[in-house]
Design a protein around this nucleic acid. Structure first.
Length: 488
RNA sequence: GGUAAGGUGGCAGAACGGUUAUGCGUGGGCCUGCAAAGCCUAUACAAGGGGGUUCGACUCCCUCUCUUACCUCCA
């Protein structure tokens, strides 16, 4: 069946770049209102870093946008909890591999909840799907595409004629490269392990001998179990294209004889000074640390600042730009809040109609269109900033009344929800306390007691409350605490 | 060496065969009791080099060059 006739961009059509075909592929062109997504998650032997966060936040926004368009997205994200590095690290710490995995899974959930990432529908773990994995391997052996050797069960790459189609590599080129460690028992240096024989811990019985699964097989087995033989979108970082995703295709398509994923979506690397963040370079920035330094909203804006497929540099300058944006969005949120309760109608009231903010409807449309167009988050953020700066400008002119505020507020919160941005709540008691201090200060100002009024302003500022004086009225903003702000 | 993705103003970054976003930074001005926020304005008509197609290219084609990633575990 031909994917599309080339139009592919009708009203409401969402397109995503597919690594395999090298082209945009239409999602809603398939006439579907439900989409399945499988995202390769993390190996749980250490804390998650910003690179993981970028991939996961990208898919989080994709999912929120699909749902905003009325498309139900089912998302499955795995945890790789059996692996050589996990075993080595657990041995170093003198604990069980399962205990180590448990710890980092718990920490993962804490951190990504703070990043306001929606929960996946399920988080399958390799160790909880050993029977599925064994069944999958059994099918491959039965079909003649896998064989038992001295050290394990291997997939025979020669049995899958299309091997290399995702990464654009040719098998003979890969063989001539021959950097792969030579296992004499393998028929072909390209063959990869489905099952590794090992009687140590952890290990499971299998028809071929005790051991543990190889890395690639878990994703094939688990995605098939939860999402079926063919998933709509399979994603991960660009560094997974080869060999991980290439091998998944080989396993899955050999088993079923049909297409494994309609769209392969890959997220670019996060770099430090232009180099990939990686263990070996020792330039890892953990999510935990980034949350302390910048908080969830700035991290999200940073991760969404460029196109997802391109690299993005984790530099102070880039983070500061995201921070500046966040401060404007935050201020806008409070302007709208104050305007909404300002019911005397003096400040430019009017009906609750979005058109009252110049360009508001247009900005909403541009926001949606940008995300439809291969998830162009940069342009989507620009549309948000247009609404924010228009709103803030009207507020500064005392022209933002309750009607306009309601229109802009609804649109801004819709867009914020899709991007996963969230102004921290201020509890009503604190808000009331701030109101009365602000009122007291304005009393002092009216009497010309400016030194006392400035002292009151300083006291509020120490609690991260900033004031904007508008004639006889004052708007206050409770600033999110950003660690990096403290160190100039 | 092979494969892939890229080279746009001080920085970040889009779109588009003709009209060059937007944000940040920086300078100047306005507003303010002073600030903050906001506004105006300047920096800015920028596209790695060279060919080609075209009436016209940042945008399409070729070539060279440079960068990054992958080819071993990696989001």
């Amino acid at each position: 069946m031909a994917a599309d006739g080339g139009s592919g961009r009708g009203a409401g059509g969402i397109t995503i770049h597919d690594t395999l075909s090298g082209k945009r592929s239409s999602l809603s062109g398939q006439g579907t209102n439900a989409v399945s997504i499988y995202l390769c998650g993390v190996t749980v032997y250490d804390d998650a870093h910003i690179g993981h966060a970028r991939t996961i936040i990208t898919f989080d926004v994709l999912r929120r946008h699909l749902e905003g368009r009325g498309i139900r997205a089912t998302m499955v994200q795995n945890f790789t909890d059996v692996d050589d590095k996990i075993i080595a690290r657990a041995r170093d710490e003198g604990i069980q591999a399962s205990e180590l995995g448990e710890r980092y899974i718990r920490r993962y959930h804490e951190e990504f909840e703070r990043l306001n990432v929606l929960k996946a529908d399920s988080y399958p773990r390799a160790t909880e799907h050993i029977p599925d994995i064994i069944g999958f391997i059994g099918d491959l052996i039965g079909g003649g595409a896998a064989y038992v050797a001295k050290n394990g069960v291997y997939f025979a790459v020669s049995e899958f004629a299309q091997y290399g189609k995702l990464s654009g590599k040719k098998t003979d080129q890969l063989r001539s490269g021959a950097r792969i460690e030579v296992d004499e028992a393998k028929r072909d240096p390209l063959d990869f392990a489905l099952w590794k024989f090992d009687s140590g811990h952890p290990s499971w019985d299998s028809p071929w001998g005790a051991g543990r699964p190889g890395w690639h097989i878990e994703c094939s087995a688990m995605s098939t179990k939860y999402l079926g033989d063919c998933i709509d979108i399979h994603g991960g970082g660009r560094d997974l294209i080869f060999p991980h995703h290439e091998n998944e295709i080989a396993q899955s398509e050999t088993r079923t004889g049909s297409m494994f994923a309609r769209i392969w979506m890959h997220v670019g690397m996060v770099t430090i000074g232009g180099e990939k963040m990686s263990k070996s370079l020792g330039n890892i920035r953990s999510v935990r640390r980034a949350l302390e330094d910048w908080g969830p909203n700035v991290i999200r804006l940073f991760c969404l600042s460029g196109h997802y497929s391109k690299p993005v540099d984790y530099s102070d300058e880039n983070l500061r730009e995201s921070l500046a944006r966040w401060r404007q969005i935050e201020a806008c949120h409070y302007e709208l809040m104050h305007a909404a309760r300002n019911t005397d109608g003096k400040n430019g009231g009017g009906p609750a109609c979005g058109a009252n903010i110049p360009g508001l409807v247009d900005a909403g449309d541009r926001f949606d269109a940008a995300l439809d167009d291969d998830l162009n988050t940069h342009l989507a953020v620009s549309a948000v900033m247009d609404v924010v700066s228009d709103t803030n400008a009207l507020a500064a002119d005392c022209a933002l009344g309750p009607g306009r505020a309601a229109g802009a507020g609804a649109e801004l919160s819709r867009m914020s929800r899709i991007l996963g941005l969230r102004v921290p709540n201020v509890d009503p008691a604190e808000a009331a306390a701030i109101d009365s201090e602000v009122e007291a200060r304005n009393g002092l100002r009216r009497q010309g007691r400016y030194e006392e009024a400035d002292a009151a302003r300083d006291r509020l500022r120490a609690r991260h409350v900033e004031l904007f004086d508008r004639g006889d009225k004052t708007v206050w903003v409770k600033r999110e605490k950003i660690g990096a702000d403290a160190r100039s």
